[in-house]
Design a protein around this nucleic acid. Sequence first.
DNA 1: GGGCCGATTAGG
DNA 2: CTAATCGGCCCG
Length: 191
Amino acid sequence: MRGNAPIGIAFFQRHPLICARELIGCTFGFGDTAGMIVETEAYMAVDDRACHTWKRAGAREFVSSHAPGTAYVYLNYGMHWLFNFLVTGGECEGFVLVRALEPLEGIPLMRRRRGRERLQELCNGPAKLTQALGIDGNHHGCDPLTGEGWILSKTPRHQEVIVSKRIGITQDAEYPWRFLSKGCPFVSFLA
DNA sequence: GGGCCGATTAGG
DNA sequence: CTAATCGGCCCG
């Protein structure tokens, strides 16, 4: 898209909180579908009980053996795929969970995959957007920065960002590590 | 092997 | 409010 700047590895070699905040307003897509990121959450690989690295050896192994920006996709509640960007190679490692998109491209396909018509119900949740984009466990370990079919770029448009607590966790839930596009109707829940 | 839990969602 | 549904982890 005109005016968009590609995102490189260096983007994900910074602090997860910086990455999570700066991903707001970026364009993210896979296949024939894409949207603008309007909600994210940061997870820290160290000292964060809500992060998979706290309990899962596999997650710690993933962090130490993959490049910055790699897709960390996992199944939650036995039925929902959630998409994260790996943050590594900098001072602090972790993940950024993508929680909501404003649908931009391939909306008819999104509607079909989601079984929903309303634009606001297509990508307003972490599991909804993976379903809308056609992302699942097959994409775990993929590279959205250079991989075939992926889109990730900065948008020239400025986004005002709101910060709030993370959603849906019980441990370390008090940290303000969730980022939302201010006033956006496509977020999962209001702050 | 069994029990428990979870970064969610849709439906009553 | 709850069911759905399964991989990972912690036992034993």
